[in-house]
Structures are given as structure tokens and as C-alpha cells.
């Protein structure tokens, strides 16, 4: 169809998060899509709203001893331990590859002290080809006795505030579900200056082998992900959407476009697909296609019109 009828794209899947425009609302979740290049032979990265790369720390990390992944009912437990190549090698070796694509690059990062977060954020802030940073304040796999910033509102506020006030890039704060009331943490991150919130990170869990009487993870506990956690994640996204003004990115067990739309209807402006990548590397692209078809069949012009449309009453 020519320009004469309007140079618009319909249905319009684009969304705005923290001041950056994504071609569609589907991103790959941190830690499930490597540095992007591992998936590039199988997936057209340009078809993704954003790639969120696996968590980066200041120094390289070997991660936890194995076994560190175990299957559970409708889910997966992992205790990878944030294995990564460190920020220096990431910026030199991995980032240039990702920058070559049209997709947005969001870098997940973590530290074991405010100083490490700050130093790391400064390095990433100065690198080319990054659209936003996602701050992990909650990884339950970490076993070095660090305080879990994301479980205490005052610590959340402090670490977010310290990082944000020196940062040029938009800051997404990724919330932990392992808290009594996620809305107090969400408000603390908002007050600290976060530009967007993503949730949920994995739920703490464990599994036991009754033959050996051992935990199935060498680290004993790990993070539960996959369809098993979707109802919990949906509820938390809905709570946070109603508690803060920031855009929310929904994460937790998304396998299909229907799952993704559930998250958007409870208030997510965008979503991240995680565990499903291990089953089908192309799942995110299929979710985008499914969303498109849904909009066409429902005569809906813009995906952003579905954000937070959950009906509040039955009548």
C-alpha cells in the first residue's frame, strides 16, 4: 500500500520504555540468551524488541559448581551463579557484534557493593551501542554473603539513587519476587530514580534427589523460572503497575503470545521471554508474530492500547 493512504505501520507493535523506542515489546530475558551471538545463527535478532544480555560484573566470574540446572514441574531451577566474562571483555568482544543489529541492546549488570555497581555502571555508560541498563538487585544465586539490595526498601533506594544520579543511560531496575510486599520495593526504586522496572526475577527454590538424599543443585538452592511461576509473576506485575507510575516490563514463564498479552493487559508495557528460549530459540519471534495476528483479528491498531486494560469488575 502506498504512502498516500498513510505511512503508518499497522498493526503498530512499537512501545516506549524509559524513553527508548522498541520495534516491538518482546525482549529476551537476561541469562537465557547469552550475549546474543550464541543465538544469532538461529534467530533474526533484528526481529526482537531488545536483547537483554546476561548479567555482567566488574570482574569475570566462574559461577557455581555443577550441577546447576534442574528441571522441575513446568519449570526450571538454576544456580548458575552469574557466570560471566566481566565487563572489560564484554565491551571489547561481545558488544560490537550486538551493535551491528537493528535491535536494542540492554545490558544487565550486578555488583556486590554500591562501589562495584557504580564503577561498573560508569564503564557501561561510556560504551557505544547500549540502549539501556538493567540493574539486577536480587539474584538469589549469589552465595558470597552479600546483602540482597532488592529485599529491603532502604537499600534498594540507596543503590538505585547512587547509580542513577551519575548515569546517562536509562536505568531499568529488575525486582526480586522473594519479598513480603513487592510494591514497597517498587516504590523505593521509583523514588531512587529508576526509569523502568522489570519483574519478576526467579523465585527461590530447591529440589531433592531421594535416592542420594542430596539437593539436586550443588548450590542447594536456586532460582525457579518457567511456566510454573507465571501466575505469581502476573499478580506482581499487576500490583506494581497499580503502585508506581514507571513503565513495567513483565517477566515470568512467558511461552506464547497469549502469555505475553496477559502480562500486557495487567500493566506490562513490554515483556521478557526467558526459560522458553531453551526450548525454542525462535520463541520470541513467534510471540511477536502471534501478537501481530491477534491485533489484526481483533481490529486493534496499536499494541500499546492493550497495556493495563484489565477490566476491574465483573458485570
Amino acid at each position: 500500500m502506498g504512502q498516500a493512504i498513510g505511512d503508518v505501520t499497522v498493526p503498530d507493535l512499537s512501545v516506549d520504555i524509559a524513553g527508548i523506542k522498541l520495534v516491538n515489546p518482546v525482549m529476551t530475558a537476561s541469562g537465557t540468551f547469552g550475549y546474543g551471538e550464541e543465538f544469532a545463527p538461529y534467530v533474526d535478532l533484528n526481529g526482537l524488541g531488545a536483547v537483554v544480555v546476561k548479567g555482567i560484573s566488574l570482574q569475570p566470574k566462574p559461577g557455581n559448581p555443577t550441577p546447576r540446572i534442574v528441571e522441575t514441574a513446568a519449570g526450571m531451577l538454576n544456580s548458575i551463579g552469574l557466570q560471566n566474562i566481566g565487563v572489560e571483555r564484554f565491551v571489547e568482544e561481545k558488544l560490537p557484534f550486538l551493535s551491528g543489529f537493528g535491535t536494542r541492546v540492554i545490558v544487565n549488570f550486578f555488583g556486590d557493593s554500591i562501589d562495584e555497581y557504580r564503577e561498573l555502571a560508569a564503564v557501561l555508560d561510556g560504551a557505544d551501542g547500549i540502549s539501556a541498563l538493567e540493574m539486577n538487585i536480587s539474584c538469589p544465586n549469589k552465595e558470597e554473603g552479600w546483602l540482597e539490595f532488592g529485599t529491603r526498601p532502604e537499600l534498594t533506594y540507596r543503590v538505585v539513587n547512587e547509580i542513577k544520579k551519575r548515569l546517562r543511560l536509562p536505568l531499568i531496575v529488575k525486582l526480586s519476587p522473594n519479598v513480603t510486599d513487592i510494591t514497597t520495593i517498587a516504590r523505593a526504586a521509583e523514588d531512587g530514580g529508576a526509569d523502568a522496572l522489570s519483574l519478576i526475577n526467579t523465585l527461590s527454590g530447591m529440589a531433592v534427589d531421594i535416592e542420594t538424599r542430596r539437593a539436586r543443585l550443588a548450590n542447594v538452592i536456586g532460582g525457579l523460572s518457567g511456566p510454573a511461576i507465571k501466575p505469581v509473576a502476573l499478580k506482581m506485575v499487576w500490583q506494581v503497575f497499580n503502585a508506581v507510575k514507571l513503565p513495567v516490563i513483565g517477566i515470568g514463564g512467558i511461552m506464547t503470545y497469549e502469555d505475553a498479552l496477559e502480562f500486557m493487559m495487567v500493566g506490562a508495557s513490554a515483556v521478557q521471554v526467558g526459560t522458553a528460549n531453551f526450548i525454542d530459540p525462535e520463541v520470541s519471534i513467534k510471540i511477536v508474530e502471534g501478537m501481530k495476528e491477534y491485533l489484526v483479528n481483533k481490529c486493534i491498531l496499536r499494541i500499546r492500547d492493550l497495556v493495563g486494560v484489565l477490566e476491574s469488575e465483573y458485570d
Binding site: 493512504i5 498513510g6 503508518v8 499497522v10 498493526p11 483479528n297 481490529c299
Partner: peptide, 16 residues
């Protein structure tokens, strides 16, 4: 062309 109503809807129907 500039008088066409519901241009975006028409594009959506064409995509269907």
C-alpha cells in the same frame, strides 16, 4: 486519497 476514512483500519483489514 486524503478523503479516505479509517486509513489505519483499512491497512489492518488488508493485513487480515
Amino acid at each position: 486519497p486524503q478523503d479516505i476514512l479509517f486509513k489505519e483500519d483499512i491497512l489492518l483489514w488488508e493485513a487480515n
